[in-house]
């Protein structure tokens, strides 16, 4: 019960802070919408190339916006040494990690929920009855990216050039997640059978689980000195 209360308290605090400052969501949203709008002008309206490249553009927007948000989220925790204040509390580091991951998933997820309809309209994408699967792919891709991003933002926050260091460390490690997310999204939007999508989804789920447990175990060593 105490663990649940602490988990909810951390999550609630992060959401309340963001609700008041709006600095993370605003930056991410402006970036992702800008990417969608700019790429919309690159292709002829309704062209086949537009639909083929749409999944890649979609994930580029989400991943780079997510990187922006992750970097800012942990930097904010460093102001006034608030992270130290959290580390001094009698709270398990794995709980702290899980709460931070969920918070980051919510922030990135909110940006995705706003950006996705804009993308669908601009790129004339036909989702049809595949909505639940598309949302599941978005969730799995975001969860994997946010999991690895949470631990790398903690590492990069202690470096001198964290804005540069975070993507350098994060993107190579998340390649399997990004690749699986793009492939399954593109197959889904191309109207392919679920059987074709499933291998990529399995890869996505596999890396999500693997990364979560590795990061879960390493977080304590990362945040403590």
């Amino acid at each position: 019960m105490q663990t649940l209360t602490q988990f909810y308290t951390i999550l609630h605090k992060d959401l309340l802070q963001e609700l008041r400052s709006k600095e993370i969501i605003t930056a991410m949203l402006v970036f992702s919408l800008t990417v969608v709008v700019i790429f919309n002008f690159v292709f002829d309206p309704g062209s086949a190339e537009m639909r083929t490249t749409a999944p890649g553009i979609l994930w580029v927007a989400f991943i780079f916006a997510g990187n922006l948000g992750l970097s800012r989220a942990f930097a904010r925790e460093q102001e006034n040494s608030m992270m130290q204040g959290l580390l001094l509390c009698p709270v398990d580091r794995s709980l702290l990690f899980t709460a931070k991951v969920i918070g980051n998933i919510l922030f990135i997820g909110l940006v995705e929920i706003i950006t996705l309809p804009v993308m669908i309209i601009f790129f004339d994408l036909a989702v049809g009855r595949a909505w639940p699967l598309l949302l599941a792919i978005l969730f799995l891709g975001t969860a994997g990216f946010a999991t690895v991003g949470t631990i790398f933002s903690a590492i990069s926050a202690n470096t001198r050039s964290r804005e540069v260091m975070l993507p350098i460390m994060l993107f190579p490690v998340t390649v399997p997640i990004i690749l699986a997310a793009i492939k399954s999204t593109s197959y889904l939007l191309a109207g392919r059978e679920t059987a074709d999508i499933w291998p990529w989804l399995r890869l996505l789920i596999g890396f999500d689980v693997l990364y979560f447990f590795v990061c879960f175990l390493l977080y304590e060593y990362v945040v403590e000195e």
Partner: peptide, 16 residues
């Protein structure tokens, strides 16, 4: 559980 720490950094959330 048994220690309280105050430093020149306040550990306070400015948006709260």
């Amino acid at each position: 559980r048994r220690i309280g720490v105050v430093s020149h950094q306040t550990f306070l959330y400015e948006d709260l």
